[in-house]
Amino acid sequence: MAEKVHWASGITKRLRNWSERQDTEAEEALLELVYTELHRQAHRYLQRERAGHTLQTTALVNEAYLKLIQQKSVVWESRSHFFAIAATLMRRILVDYAKSKHRERRGGGMEELPLEDALTVAVSNDTDFDLLALDEALTRLAEKEEQLAKIVELRFFSGLDVPETAEVLGVSESTVKRDWAMAKAWLYRELTR
């Protein structure tokens, strides 16, 4: 138990440092903490799944975050902010991971491998997309309208559902739905061009 408290207080402190002073080192440390916690949670989650529990995509991430912020010293007003930050971090973690896989498979960048060997993530049930391409497209989308990209980060990279996303962004659920549709359509078009 003591360990958890330590972790949680660590992340809160980092978070404050980051939000108050734009401390990039705090960001790095935060990234690490989230990553470790995510990994731990993911492991548990998969074990449970195997044991026959139902699959809940958002549960994993929520649980990881909640574990980290569940303590009295956390001001609840910062929750949204926290999720927003966490979504960005999550995108970075996942894209970095995809990149590392990409490098691995491509022989450290020495040789070009056939396209099908590049890392793909099943971003839909029937089509696989390169997560790195998605990341790039998302960056372009953010230039057009940042909120759309933010919603994708929260929903796709962080696994939040519509109400949660709405809460984090302080917008209505219908706005989230509308923006989500636009973002999906636009990104899908980018990736299938």
Binding site: L38, R155, F156, G159, L187
Partner: peptide, 8 residues
């Protein structure tokens, strides 16, 4: 598309 979170 993107309905299953990447994290999962």
């Amino acid at each position: 598309f993107m309905e299953v979170p990447a994290v999962a």
